[in-house]
Design a protein around this nucleic acid. Structure first.
Lengths: 227, 227
DNA sequence: AACTTTCAGATCGTACATTATTTGTCAACA
DNA sequence: TGTTGACAAATAATGTACGATCTGAAAGTT
């Protein structure tokens, strides 16, 4: 399995376990650094306890991924992660995920369905008691469907978008209505796969992604109010 | 220490026109460096006539964009730009571009249609006499439709994918059958916009992208044979 | 008031030190 | 004789330091 889109292996970093890149990215996505704020390399270097070079390279990587905007001799700025950004990503996923799902319906075995049902059972048993654990299970659920798709580029895109959306909502609880929707939609999805109904599965996923987007935007608004 | 301004280099400008990043990216996309080949910073530095830092930063940016793969303490490698890669990108575009087109049909004014027809007239007048000029006109044509879309993320993705596909086929002529298809599809597209037929336009674009993908893969095969 | 000069602060490029990996050599062993 | 394993040297990536250049804005001049 060759997937690893951007995941560089673990880093010894020094201070924390995660790399400079991950720390910076998380600060941007989670909103700890404000939109359009300037990112000065020397300041970041002293704050992270390294020299400037690792910072510069991390910023370039983030630039490539579109999280920071840079201009010649004028440094880097934070790309705003706002409601529009979330909407844009979700709209793209509404197009991509149904296509991935449709393909999965065509190749799914009874073993795959068993796996889905097992994860889904865990999700329902947990019932959002632990946010991080739920997020991990939900990732597993969708990964079971998408991971073996031949279009690695599309899957990598999905993974990256998912990481972004996940980081945005982190720390703010999911609404009850959204919780029930997620579980219901997962069940419908499994039913469609069983019935070999690719069109139905595709529709359910589109609705699932759209609902997820709305939920995240809600949490984004909450975050704005509380800081 | 004065920094040597690439005096001996045969490259133009250098400031913003052809940065290290762009040169490296072009070498990867155009296939001048082989798939999975190792990219050594010191070697690249001497070859490009700079120190290692600009190279490292360019590599990080390319990593963020997915053109090079890096592992800790083991350097960078060229991500293979092969038929699968083209197919993956085109499949994503087959999903995205119809959505962008559908939106355009909804907001197009008569002025927009005039612009489209003017560019299309230029394309037909040129009739593929100049490859680079045609590519530029074709970009203009599609940009007229997509550029004002609210989903900047999707448009950026489209632009990036288009640059990649454009660079892959560069230097190899488009087949005659493809040439006529392109012109025909553009005409159909304009007709659909005029008739406010969003579904039809969407279908035409999907076919357009698919044909483009097939054409590029053909040229990729040609390139492989001739080196 | 508009233009020029000056200067602090930040980015960018170069050189060097450190650390990890790869390579090459050679002896021990089946 | 061919293979394996350990160890040393070479090679390359990563981190640190510093000088050069650019930007932005305040201070000074006409």
């Amino acid at each position: 399995m060759r997937h690893t889109p951007l995941a560089d292996g673990d880093e010894q970093g020094g201070d924390t376990g995660s790399s400079i890149y991950e720390r910076l990215r998380d600060e941007i996505i989670s909103g700890r650094v404000k939109a359009n704020e300037r990112l000065k390399v020397s300041e970041l270097a002293s704050r992270m306890g390294t020299s400037t070079n690792p910072i510069r390279e991390a910023l370039q990587q983030l630039r490539g991924e579109g999280f920071v905007l840079m201009t010649q001799n004028r440094g880097a700025r934070v790309r705003p992660i706002d409601e529009d950004f979330v909407r844009d990503i979700c709209e793209i996923e509404v197009l991509i995920e149904p296509a991935l799902t449709r393909w999965f319906v065509g190749i799914a075995t009874t073993g795959d369905i068993d796996d889905l049902e097992r994860v889904q059972a865990e999700i329902e048993a947990l019932n959002y008691a632990d946010e991080e654990k739920h997020s991990d299970l939900d990732l597993q659920f969708h990964r079971l469907m998408y991971d073996r798709h031949y279009n690695r580029h599309a899957v990598d895109l999905w993974i990256r978008h998912r990481q972004i959306l996940g980081a945005i909502g982190r720390g703010f609880p999911t609404s009850l209505s959204r919780q029930t929707s997620v579980i219901e939609e997962h069940r419908q999805l499994i039913a469609c796969v069983k019935a070999q109904d690719a069109e139905g599965a595709s529709r359910v996923i589109a609705q699932h992604v759209e609902g997820s987007g709305r939920s995240i935007i809600e949490r984004l608004r909450l975050r704005k109010r509380r800081g």
